[in-house]
Design a protein around this nucleic acid. Structure first.
Lengths: 180, 180
DNA sequence: GTCTATAAAATGATAGAC
DNA sequence: GTCTATCATTTTATAGAC
């Protein structure tokens, strides 16, 4: 991966996150990255190829995050880590994750609608077990509820809420979970 | 509002909801509605005007829904009604509400980002009171949490989940709320 | 109110030189 | 690997006839 290739990827990521995939012209990406428009197509074939490359990075980074949670031993620690995940993702690489979440709502990518990644499914399974270990009566439903909650939280994080709001939300959510 | 005007609006709504605002050409709207493309611009000035007209309808319909909840007397009934709101909205007018929710993620409309409507703020205030009446210690935070939950639920509703999933989710959420 | 025809600009993509 | 120049299409929008 050459320097310009990375530059294109980084710029495209930023612009896609800010303005959406289909409202960001390749001409703008080229201008912002300071490269010729032709170069984008030489390296990534077409606009979709550019998105593919970004998504490949995404899978990799998400895998690392999930791994870090899965390796925790205490069930409650796992649950708290999942609760903190969206905030962590957004604070570390805001544009990157904004793009991820917004994809769900944009035009079907390559004809398929949004599909949860393998990492996501692994996480669900691990958290279900955690709830079970804590003695919750309906672990599957608890996970489902928690997902709804974190989905909504990710949603809110797009609006750049204050740090105070974020912290207060996190601790309030955590306060709802304990050994059953 | 003439017959063709309504037809254009209805068709645009459907297509915007399916494919997004900026990925739906006016030519397609015209073809699907069986009218000339020029007529769209004659009536709605430009593509944005078309969206404005749709959004005006939205405000009106949302107002009706909120009014129905506000007039309930029992605090728990209000909370349950809010919990049921997303499902009700999607089952009654799926495309319409899908468009609403997806707008949050699309390109900033007219340069402003998404802003909650007056109806929304009214609803928040009423539900906060309901929690207070039920004796909850931190009603504001409870509302915030509930909003996250319903935001996430709306998100999931986009994926056309099974009716069984929906019902089970609703009753599980409700089971978390009672007189404190 | 509605349609046909057309303009004007933007956009994705390719070819060929360096 | 990279750039310049250019093409083909699509898309928003307007003008004028009926």
């Amino acid at each position: 991966m050459t320097e310009k290739q990375e530059l294109i990827l980084e710029t495209a990521l930023k612009l896609f996150a800010e303005n959406g995939f289909d409202t960001t012209p390749t001409s703008l990406i080229a201008r912002e990255a300071g490269v010729s428009e032709g170069l984008i197509f030489r390296h990534f074939t077409n606009k979709e190829g550019l998105m593919d490359a970004i998504l490949a990075l995404s899978e990799e980074r998400m895998g690392q995050k999930v791994q870090a949670i899965v390796t925790l031993t205490e069930p409650l620690a796992k649950i708290y880590a999942v609760i903190e995940l969206p905030v962590k993702l957004f604070s570390e690489e805001r544009e990157f994750w904004k793009l991820q979440f917004s994809l769900k709502w944009q035009k079907k990518y390559k004809g398929q609608s949004y599909r949860p990644s393998g990492h996501y499914l692994e996480l669900v399974s691990v958290i279900t077990d955690a709830f079970r270990q804590l003695g919750y009566a309906e672990p599957e439903k608890e996970v489902m509820l928690l997902i709804l909650l974190l989905d909504g939280l990710s949603n809110q994080l797009m609006q750049q809420p204050s740090d105070e709001f974020i912290q207060s939300t996190l601790s309030f959510i955590k306060s709802k979970y304990f050994n059953a």
